[in-house]
Simulated assay, not measured.
Amino acid sequence: MAPIPKPPADPQDNPDAYVGLDADGAERLARERGWSTVRSLPPGAIITMEYRVGRLNFEVKDGQVARAWKG
């Protein structure tokens, strides 16, 4: 019998650590820490709600990360 595949995991990183950083620097740091996808969004953007392993979302206001969350 074939082994059960193990799904990939998110990097062990706290999204709250990005709040207050400039958007470009936060994206570079997130990629260095292992996030495969980093998505920057304006406040109030309409987005899909599917969860994607390895994706970090930033809400960017005036060039700074105002909120960050996984998926």
Score class of each variant (00 low, 15 high):
residue 1 M to Q: 11
residue 1 M to L: 13
residue 2 A to I: 13
residue 3 P to Q: 11
residue 3 P to R: 09
residue 3 P to G: 11
residue 4 I to V: 15
residue 5 P to R: 08
residue 6 K to V: 15
residue 6 K to D: 13
residue 6 K to C: 12
residue 6 K to Y: 13
residue 7 P to S: 12
residue 8 P to L: 15
residue 8 P to F: 14
residue 8 P to R: 15
residue 9 A to C: 11
residue 9 A to K: 11
residue 9 A to M: 14
residue 9 A to W: 07
residue 10 D to F: 15
residue 12 Q to W: 12
residue 13 D to H: 05
residue 14 N to Q: 15
residue 14 N to K: 12
residue 14 N to P: 07
residue 15 P to G: 11
residue 15 P to H: 11
residue 16 D to M: 12
residue 16 D to R: 12
residue 16 D to G: 15
residue 17 A to M: 13
residue 19 V to G: 06
residue 19 V to L: 08
residue 20 G to C: 09
residue 20 G to D: 07
residue 20 G to E: 04
residue 20 G to L: 10
residue 22 D to A: 10
residue 22 D to V: 07
residue 23 A to Q: 08
residue 23 A to S: 15
residue 25 G to I: 07
residue 25 G to E: 13
residue 25 G to H: 14
residue 26 A to W: 04
residue 27 E to N: 06
residue 28 R to T: 13
residue 29 L to K: 11
residue 30 A to K: 05
residue 30 A to C: 08
residue 31 R to A: 14
residue 31 R to P: 11
residue 32 E to R: 15
residue 33 R to C: 13
residue 33 R to N: 15
residue 33 R to A: 12
residue 34 G to M: 11
residue 35 W to T: 09
residue 35 W to M: 03
residue 35 W to N: 02
residue 35 W to Q: 05
residue 35 W to V: 05
residue 36 S to Q: 15
residue 36 S to T: 14
residue 36 S to F: 08
residue 37 T to I: 14
residue 39 R to P: 01
residue 40 S to V: 04
residue 40 S to C: 14
residue 42 P to H: 08
residue 43 P to R: 09
residue 44 G to R: 01
residue 45 A to D: 02
residue 45 A to W: 03
residue 47 I to R: 08
residue 47 I to E: 09
residue 48 T to P: 06
residue 48 T to Q: 10
residue 48 T to K: 11
residue 49 M to P: 01
residue 50 E to G: 12
residue 50 E to W: 08
residue 51 Y to G: 01
residue 51 Y to H: 14
residue 51 Y to I: 09
residue 51 Y to P: 04
residue 52 R to C: 04
residue 52 R to P: 00
residue 53 V to H: 07
residue 53 V to D: 00
residue 53 V to M: 09
residue 53 V to E: 08
residue 54 G to T: 00
residue 54 G to F: 04
residue 55 R to K: 08
residue 55 R to N: 04
residue 56 L to E: 01
residue 57 N to S: 06
residue 58 F to S: 00
residue 58 F to A: 03
residue 59 E to G: 06
residue 59 E to T: 05
residue 60 V to H: 03
residue 61 K to R: 06
residue 62 D to K: 05
residue 62 D to P: 06
residue 62 D to V: 02
residue 63 G to L: 00
residue 63 G to P: 06
residue 63 G to Q: 02
residue 64 Q to P: 01
residue 64 Q to E: 03
residue 65 V to H: 00
residue 66 A to D: 06
residue 66 A to Y: 00
residue 67 R to M: 06
residue 67 R to T: 04
residue 67 R to S: 03
residue 68 A to D: 00
residue 68 A to R: 02
residue 68 A to F: 01
residue 68 A to L: 03
residue 69 W to D: 04
residue 69 W to S: 02
residue 71 G to D: 00
residue 71 G to E: 01
residue 71 G to T: 02
residue 71 G to H: 01
